[in-house]
Amino acid sequence: MLTTNERPFDGGTLVVTNVPTEKCDCDEQILLGDSALMAGYARLLADSKIIGNVTVSFDDLQQKFSVQDFMSKSVKPS
């Protein structure tokens, strides 16, 4: 299944469309890695002082960025 996820950031709202979800009992959940990718992009928008609503498809976001792009440079993945 696919859903739309909205995340507020300083200056606006990030709207990510076509986010994959997993059905769990009677609830839909976004995978942790996918959620982290969207949170990292929202932080990038805030840090870049972007103002307004930004809409992007999850596929486009995933093609241009990875979770590692938003990790602190002092954190080394295992």
Rank of each mutant, 00 (worst) to 15 (best):
L61A: 05
S66W: 00
K64D: 13
V75Y: 14
F58P: 05
T17R: 11
K73C: 01
T4L: 06
K73F: 00
I50W: 00
F65D: 04
G12C: 07
V56T: 11
C26E: 13
A42L: 02
S72M: 07
V16T: 14
Q29R: 14
T4Y: 00
R43I: 08
S72D: 15
S78W: 08
N18L: 09
D25Q: 10
E28C: 07
G12E: 09
Q63M: 09
P20R: 10
E22W: 08
D27T: 12
C24T: 13
R7A: 05
G40P: 04
D69A: 05
T13G: 00
V75C: 05
R43E: 15
T21E: 10
Y41C: 06
K76A: 07
V16F: 02
E28L: 14
I51G: 02
T21D: 04
R43H: 08
R43S: 13
D25V: 07
L2P: 00
I51N: 07
G33S: 10
I51R: 11
I50K: 15
T55E: 15
Q68K: 13
I50L: 02
L37C: 07
S48P: 00
S78Y: 10
E22I: 14
S48Y: 03
Y41H: 11
D27K: 13
V19T: 05
D34I: 02
I30H: 04
A42W: 02
L61H: 03
K23L: 14
G52D: 08
L31W: 04
M1Y: 04
G40V: 07
D59G: 00
